[in-house]
Amino acid sequence: MADRASEWQRLSDALALLIDLPASEQKARLDAIARGDAALRAELVSLLRAHDARSALDTPVLDVLLISQEKVEATLPAWSDEVIGARYHVLAAGVGGGMGVVVKALDDRLDRVVALKFLSSHLLENVVARERFRVEARAIASLDHPNVCAIYDMGDASDDRFFISMPYYHGETIAAKLARGPLAIDDVVSYALQAARGLAAAHARRIIHRDIKPANLIVTSDGVMKILDFGIAKLGGKAMTAPGFTPGTTSYMSPEQTRAEVVDPRTDIWSLGVVMYEMLTGVRPFRGADAREVSVAICEGELEAISALRRDVPGALERLVAAMLAKRAGERPATAKGVARELEGIE
């Protein structure tokens, strides 16, 4: 056992040297290290290959928590008839985590089903953040755009949690669609166009989304795309940069966001570009073993051409996505409206 441990130690040292080298220098160094020892060389090559491969370790273990639907129906009791804000009857609990919890509820007063989103108390602990959110929620409520999730109402639950009520959509998020692989070109264009239109309407009112990602884009059963969670990412600013809070979605952040710089609407254009790339190819353009590596890839990594991964993508669409993913905001399409116009041309 001690032998195998020291053997691994030796391999570890060699591997650590090799991993950081550019591919062009790796081979020469590999030869130098192995010095004719074919077995050692093969061992190192297989480890380097394993290093480059995708790994189960790259997916947070919490993702294994997803269980199939039928099981639950059989095992869970009916959800409580808790009443929120004196008018919403909770019908089913939603999903927890990051920004808060979503529950399905019946709005007593207007007799319709709504989704209630509770914002995590640690995101809204101070009055300023809460007020800022209210202001933004009002702005979104006034938007009234078919591609932006509407806001019906907001209020405080009895236990001091803050909630907003919004339409309850039957549909599927882009994240759920992506779980089955890349999307058809027509669908990508249609979804991207709708998202760009929604963003354009928001940007016209000086509202930046800041957290465009597949989980925030839901396609209703009628094929209408709704952008969710406007303005909530801004709230996260403080809490998410606190030590230990690794935001789950570094992958969709713009270079300026990863550097915590001031952002403008073009950050949303970048993020939509990442989502489009992923819808087309099934993979994210900038990857890494952890958030920091992803950030480095976002800021410095070269974009792998979409055509290298998928052949049937129209040239104009590929060029548009590449432009949206320009590292410098100034080199991206200037407005979401412009992106929408380009997409209309492709459609």
């Binding site: 993702d63 089913a92 939603g94 927890g96 985590g97 990051g98 998020t173 969710l228």
Partner: peptide, 18 residues
């Protein structure tokens, strides 16, 4: 886990990291 299960019904998904 419970929240996640229900998420499929509401169609809203959120990160569970953290």
């Amino acid at each position: 886990a419970h929240y996640r299960l229900r998420a499929e019904q509401t169609g809203h998904t959120l990160e569970t990291t953290g």
